[in-house]
């Protein structure tokens, strides 16, 4: 920790490499905190809807593929291992190890996205999408669909006109006889009665689950892509030989970010796929 020399990588406003390293690390932790809070909003939405409509979550999670989700969890855990190892290689000046391990991490990332793509495609094929795109036609629901061609009424939000939309089929809501049955909690249940009653075991508003599923995994997927770009950039720089045991801060910080992305998935997997 000599204060006399001022290496290239040291910013002019820092006194020592240690000060720069500490600052970067603190900055990264703060950034990770903001990332967690970004996801926290979605976790809150998840908890609110799950506690108000547990039946939706119990019913709808069956349509997620536990096997693929499980494999993806393993893939990400492996990638965390290779990433941690890569950081170690950088610290110990093993350039070839660093390049190899970063490449492997990148490969695991690709693998994760590939599996995620397969899952999304299945959902798309079966119409198990969010909100107003929810038009299920899986084996189980198909028999119901025959009797109810327009099971899902058009959404109010889909009407662009400022004019108030027509009353939904079947009931005129201005005759609010059902008033005393109004829900007390945070979530709305009043529109449930607008659903045709012949849908058997399917609870109403299943689209809420898929909305949350796509939001959470989608945002996570974007972060995986972000993390992979960072790893790609680290790979290029390590090929150029920028990192030494003296200066490996970017590898360290990139690793922290990748671990966070993994960690979020570790929470998403049981919350979405493994509902008892």
């Amino acid at each position: 920790m000599s204060t006399h020399e001022h290496p290239d990588y040291l910013g002019h406003h820092f006194e020592t490499p240690q000060q720069q390293y500490d600052s970067s690390k603190l900055g990264m932790w703060l950034f990770l905190a903001t990332e967690i809070l970004l996801f926290a909003g979605l976790f809150c939405a998840y908890s609110v809807y799950r506690s108000n409509h547990p039946e939706i979550f119990v019913y709808a999670h069956q349509y997620l593929d536990k096997t693929l989700g499980g494999i993806n969890t393993l893939v990400l855990i492996c990638s965390s291992l290779t990433m941690a190892w890569a950081v170690r290689s950088a610290q110990t000046n093993q350039r070839r190890g660093l390049i190899l391990l970063l490449s492997m991490t990148l490969l695991f990332g690709c693998c994760f996205l590939g599996i995620k793509y397969v899952e999304y495609e299945q959902k798309w094929k079966h119409g198990l999408l969010w909100g107003k795109r929810f038009h299920p036609h899986t084996e189980e629901t198909r028999s119901h669909e025959k009797t109810a061609p327009s099971a899902v009424p058009p959404a109010i939000a889909s009407q662009p006109a400022p004019v108030a939309p027509p009353p939904p089929t079947g009931e005129d809501r201005s005759l609010i006889e059902a008033a005393p049955r109004g829900p007390a909690g945070l979530a709305a249940g009043a529109i449930e009665e607008r659903k045709p009653g012949h849908e058997g075991s399917r609870p109403s508003n299943v689209q809420i689950f898929f909305g949350i599923y796509f939001l959470m995994t989608g945002l996570h997927g974007l972060h995986v892509i972000g993390g992979m770009s960072v790893i790609g950039w680290l790979l290029v720089r390590s090929v150029k030989g920028h990192f030494t045991s003296e200066y490996f801060t970017p590898v360290d910080l990139g690793g922290l970010y990748w671990h966070l992305v993994d960690l979020i998935w570790i929470y998403l997997f049981p919350l979405l796929y493994l509902i008892g």
């Binding site: 959404a155 709305a188 508003n205 809420i208």
Partner: peptide, 21 residues
Amino acid sequence: IVERALGVGIFDPALGGDPVL
């Protein structure tokens, strides 16, 4: 934004969402 662009329905009472959330 995704609510407006894609109709996710998290805040839309017509789709089971909660505007007060």
